[in-house]
Write a protein that binds this DNA or RNA. Structure first.
Length: 424
RNA sequence: AGAGAGGUGGCCGAGUGGUUUAAGGCGCACGCCUGGAAAGCGUGUUGGCGGCAACGCCUCGAGGGUUCGAAUCCCUUCCUCUCUGCCA
């Protein structure tokens, strides 16, 4: 969430930023934050004053009791009982104000970076780069949902039987392709200096709040009721939360983690056209990169992460483009997001395969993720993450783009991982 | 899952209702001393919030409660260890 100090000291920038996102009633909302914060301070000042008085009286009673001056002590006791009610009232006021303030802040998204253009939807995103030629396929080209049946490598019906729609079963060379991609992505990240982690794929409520999935996207996560745990929608959640409630030292930077996990998304209400086959699933595999950085370096790091992801796409020989998301399409918690899309030649569509974002202090504030700099003072770090990469749409485009009459040719870079070079 | 024991600052560790306003030690930082170092001595050392400041409030796993006053008593909850059970 945003810092109140950000809103107070940089009101105009916050306001303009929210307007870029088409956030309704931005000015009223920001002013309400400032009002609540002022009320919070006033109430605290009053509460502290009375609390101090009460503490002092209690200490006096302690002293008198020790000296055996029971009557004097009892006289003071009466005074303190009066104050007690006042403290309780002020305490309740304070808590109420704090809750209202926090709940209000939860509803306000991150302020977009200055390079982010105003816009309402995906149509307003800027294409900043396009690379690789689109393959030309013959008239017999098939979309991936046909190809997977033809070669019997991914089975949606079986998945539906044992679990439900959107939970495919990968079989034979399909399963091996998954495993190869995961290993390839992890090895690439290791070579880039990321440390591999294997986090739990269920997380508690605190972690959900830490990275901002809660309360914003409650309905999008599967919830294990009995134990109040959430299935992760992305490895961003457990990996970033590793650093929750921490004060790092500056030498710890840069923190670079990579992890492979399955991801689970309920995708409530988002089914329809364009989501056939692998385009949208309830369970999918993803390798995620996360960095925690010094605020001065986070945008440099964002560019590094973006070009790193582009490098993988080039190695896989997939045509791709990079978008800078507009205000309206940028995720709630992000200040700047690049989306990478690969071209899927049979569907003749661009498919999003990665999203690389800088959250600045938005997550760090909730996470209480700080570091101590040269001046020994603690300040919030910046957090970033990106998919590197999400598997299903990569698989879709590999299958579609590389189909030939003899079968589906595998990208060269994967052959050592696969142990075969064609699916036929 | 059952029984028992625990959770105190960067770390170890004392602490069963009132100078604990968290002892003592280790570590770390700074200063004195020294030719330099070690030792010794001194000072400082959780985090958050409020206040121009002096200073104040909160913080002993977390959340409630009892009390004029809680690290200490009560309730709830999370976690760790030991034993038993179950199990890849």
């Amino acid at each position: 969430m945003l810092l109140v100090s950000q809103i107070r000291e940089d009101f105009q920038r916050c306001l303009k930023g929210l307007e870029k996102r088409n956030f309704p009633n931005a000015e009223t909302t920001l002013n309400k934050v400032l009002d609540l914060d002022r009320a919070r301070k006033d109430t605290q000042t009053q509460r502290d004053k009375i609390q101090a008085e009460s503490n002092s009286l209690s200490r006096q009673i302690g002293g008198l009791m020790k000296e055996g001056k029971r009557e004097e002590a009892n006289a003071i006791k009466e005074k303190t009982s009066e104050i007690k009610g006042q403290i309780k009232d002020l305490e309740e006021d304070y808590n109420q104000i704090e809750i209202s303030l926090r709940e209000l802040l939860y509803t306000i998204p991150n302020i977009p970076h200055s390079s982010v253009k105003a816009g309402k939807s995906a149509e307003d995103n800027e294409i900043i780069l396009e690379k690789g030629g689109k393959p030309v396929l013959g008239a017999s080209k098939l979309p991936h949902w046909e190809l997977i049946k033809k070669y019997d490598i991914i089975d949606f019906d079986l998945g539906a039987k044992i679990t439900g729609a959107g939970f495919p079963v990968y079989k034979g060379k399909g399963a091996r392709l998954q495993r190869a991609l995961i290993n390839f992505f992890l090895d690439e990240a290791l070579a880039e200096g990321y440390m591999e982690v294997q986090p739990p794929i269920l997380v508690n409520e605190d972690s959900g709040y830490g990275t901002g999935q809660l309360p914003d996207k409650e309905g999008q996560m599967y919830h294990a009721n009995e134990d109040n745990l959430y299935l992760i929608p992305t490895a961003e959640v457990p990996i970033t939360n590793l650093y929750r409630d921490m004060i790092l030292s500056e030498e710890d930077f840069p923190i670079k983690n990579v992890g492979y996990t399955p991801c689970f998304r309920r995708e409530a209400g988002s089914w329809g056209a364009h989501v056939r086959g692998l385009n949208r699933l309830h369970q999918f595999d993803k390798v995620e990169i996360v960095q925690i950085t010094h605020p001065d370096r986070s945008y440099e790091v964002l560019e590094d992460m973006s070009s790193y992801v582009q490098g993988i796409l080039e190695k896989l020989e997939l045509p791709y483009r990079v978008l800078r998301l507009c205000g309206g399409d940028t995720g709630f918690t992000s200040a700047l997001t690049y989306d990478m899309e690969v071209y899927s030649a049979a569907q003749e569509r661009w498919l999003e395969v990665s999203s690389v974002s800088n959250f600045e202090t938005y997550q760090a504030n909730r996470l209480k993720l700080r570091f101590r700099g040269e001046d020994k003072k603690s300040q919030l770090a910046h957090s970033l993450n990106g998919s590197a990469l999400a598997l299903p749409r990569i698989v879709a485009s590999i299958l579609e783009n590389n189909q030939t009459e003899d079968g589906i040719k595998m990208p060269k870079v994967l052959i050592p991982y696969l142990g075969f070079d064609i699916i036929n």
